[in-house]
Design a binder for these strands. Structure first.
Lengths: 206, 206
DNA sequence: TAGATTGTTAATCGATTAACAATC
DNA sequence: TAGATTGTTAATCGATTAACAATC
């Protein structure tokens, strides 16, 4: 099992490799990729060692081989199915952002408590009542839930998702979720990021 | 200067403290806060030590004092001014998310290359042509830029912002930005988060 | 007092980087 | 060959946690 940080970098390397390929390049040196990724070349070489890609001294790493190995470690052969809970401003933006963007990253089902939205299709995604979570997740074999509801409702939504059989959660609500072991939770706390950048920008200015 | 991780936790503690206060509590133990934050109580005590808040054995930490000290270390007295570049789906959602949410987190100015948007007000934020970045940033004393443009344009936008005098950047484009030292860059890579949760959810399922 | 919690240090843990022989 | 890059280990660095005397 690769460390979380390595997986995060693989996601970045993958896009860097794609860009080199688009430019028609066949290979790249660790220090070139390192500069694009904002990490050290030692880091890049170590990461590539982990995923089993060998370079050659003075020739660098074969981009096709890199692309294949990164995909193998990062992504699944079969698409990952996501559902979204909370079709507000943020939820809608998430749907728009991912609609058609990645073949193996599909958000096909959304839930909201607003009855107006029921059966509407938002950016390619059909909306259901929150009461249908259990049925839809089982029927459509969804493994990951996206939580984009207000903070106060997030824990309740997480519990509903988990009891419906979800195994992974992306939580956009600015609260820590208490879920049972074995559920992977990834937090994306926008307010925190904004406060963090505000804080460090002020320090830099001094 | 507090470490980045500590600042991230302060943002979370702050909301936890607010919730306790809303419930009418006057004090809280480190292990209670730790549970809400998803960290250890050692961590909480150490963080509180850093910000200079002392608790009392068997009484815990005074919430009012905590709130004051967290604010003091995390936030500024004067509001931080942000501008947004890229008023697409994601940019619009960011505006909606922060509109009126936090007193010292203000996005008042946005830029887009679409002339249709010029002078329109989106969620309380006025849109300008991208050519006006320099003028607006200096005139309105904006210190932080939010980049919500496609990956291919992000580096160029970053350079324009930096030369206009910005000191901090939140980058939503899935690329590493090369900027001069002294500019704080916070990356929020949604695709990476989605790939990461997909990856680890599959591992958990095995 | 007895029991629980705090403040703080030292130990642990894990991730990153420096270094260099091997290789091209 | 000379010079540059890779593969990999050991050293470094930094953050987290365990531990426990002091305190309430």
């Amino acid at each position: 099992m690769l460390p979380e940080k390595t997986i995060e970098r693989l996601s970045l390397y993958r896009r860097i490799v794609e860009n080199y390929q688009i430019k028609g390049e066949k290979s790249a040196y660790s220090h070139e990729i390192a500069k694009s990724a904002g990490v050290t070349s030692s880091q890049v070489r170590r990461d590539f060692m982990f995923i089993g890609t060998n370079g050659r001294a003075n020739s660098g790493y074969d981009l096709d081989e890199l692309a294949v190995n990164i995909e193998k470690h990062l992504l699944s052969d079969t698409p990952d199915k996501f559902c979204l809970v909370g079709v507000g401003n943020l939820g809608t933006a998430i749907l728009a952002f991912f609609h058609g963007r990645r073949a193996n990253l599909i958000i096909k089902t959304a839930f909201d408590k607003d009855p107006e939205l029921e059966n509407k299709i938002v950016h390619g995604c059909r909306c259901y009542s929150i009461d249908e979570v259990e049925r839809a997740i089982k029927e459509e074999n969804i493994s990951i839930g996206i939580i984009a509801v207000p903070a106060a409702e997030a824990q309740g939504v997480a519990e509903v998702l988990v009891s419906a059989g979800i195994r992974g959660i992306i939580n956009f609500a600015p609260v820590h979720l208490n879920v049972t072991d074995g559920i992977f939770v990834e937090n994306v706390d926008l307010t925190m990021h904004f406060e963090k950048v505000a804080h460090f920008t002020r320090l830099v200015e001094k």
